[in-house]
């Protein structure tokens, strides 16, 4: 263990303690489990203490801590081997990046007397959306959480994860696409959206009655 001097320890405490709630919140968004989030924060703080001397610009402590947190999370997920490492070159050309829940549920002929897309979205509980996030592989989950849950800009995410802007965009596009696909399947399971064959029949019936 790399022991910090009393001065370093006090300095780290001063900057770290105000950020604990932020780290905990992001960890909860990644894991959606109180115990797992606590473990992730603890592992992050442990790693931060070990590496604190290597941090050159101490005004950049927040992105540095979030990077450690994200890397720890990816590493934990890989250890669990449920979400293997993703090859990003393959993703660039993957048409599945473009799955759109809207395109699946949009019914243009209902234009004047309904908004089914909004109605369906209102039927999702926060829990449904959280579960869809949880289903994402770690790298995509991190991009979606940092951008859409935390409200960070692409450049901030690129700085935290130390990846190019293009990679942030592609991870986000892939993450959003997978998230929407998950919500679509979930909505079908719940009967919020009719399965395709049934829906086709319903549409035919609605057409013939209007």
């Amino acid at each position: 263990m790399n022991i910090l001097s009393r001065k370093e320890k006090e300095e780290l405490r001063q900057v770290l303690m105000p950020l604990v709630d932020d780290l905990h919140r992001v960890a909860l968004s990644f894991c959606h489990d109180e115990n797992a989030a606590e473990e992730l924060v603890a592992a992050t703080v442990g790693k931060a203490c070990e590496s604190y001397r290597s941090l050159k610009d101490r005004s950049r402590i927040k992105p540095w801590l979030l990077r450690i947190l994200s890397n720890m999370f990816i590493s934990q997920q890989r250890t669990k081997a449920r979400h293997p490492h993703v090859e990003y070159d393959e993703i660039e050309n993957d048409k599945q990046n473009q799955f759109s829940l809207f395109e699946q549920i949009s019914q243009p002929f209902l234009l004047w007397w309904g908004n089914p897309e909004r109605e369906i979205m209102n039927k999702f509980l926060d829990e449904d959306i959280q579960k869809a996030i949880e289903s994402l592989p770690a790298e995509f989950r991190i991009a979606v959480v940092l951008s859409d849950v935390e409200g960070m800009r692409y450049q901030e995410i690129a700085n935290i994860l130390q990846i190019p802007l293009g990679t942030v965009r592609s991870r986000l596009a892939r993450g959003r696409s997978l998230l929407q696909k998950k919500l679509w399947h979930h909505a079908q399971d719940l009967g919020i959206i009719l399965r395709k064959a049934h829906r086709h029949e319903t549409i035919q019936t609605q057409h013939s009655t209007h």
């Binding site: 770290l16 905990h24 919140r25 924060v41 935390e150």
Partner: peptide
């Protein structure tokens, strides 16, 4: 909807654990 999942957390337990770790 995703943004609304961002809830403030104030966990004394986590803060205490971090203090102990430090």
């Amino acid at each position: 909807r995703l943004r609304k999942l961002n809830v403030n957390v104030h966990s004394q337990k986590v803060r205490k654990r971090v203090e102990t770790l430090l």
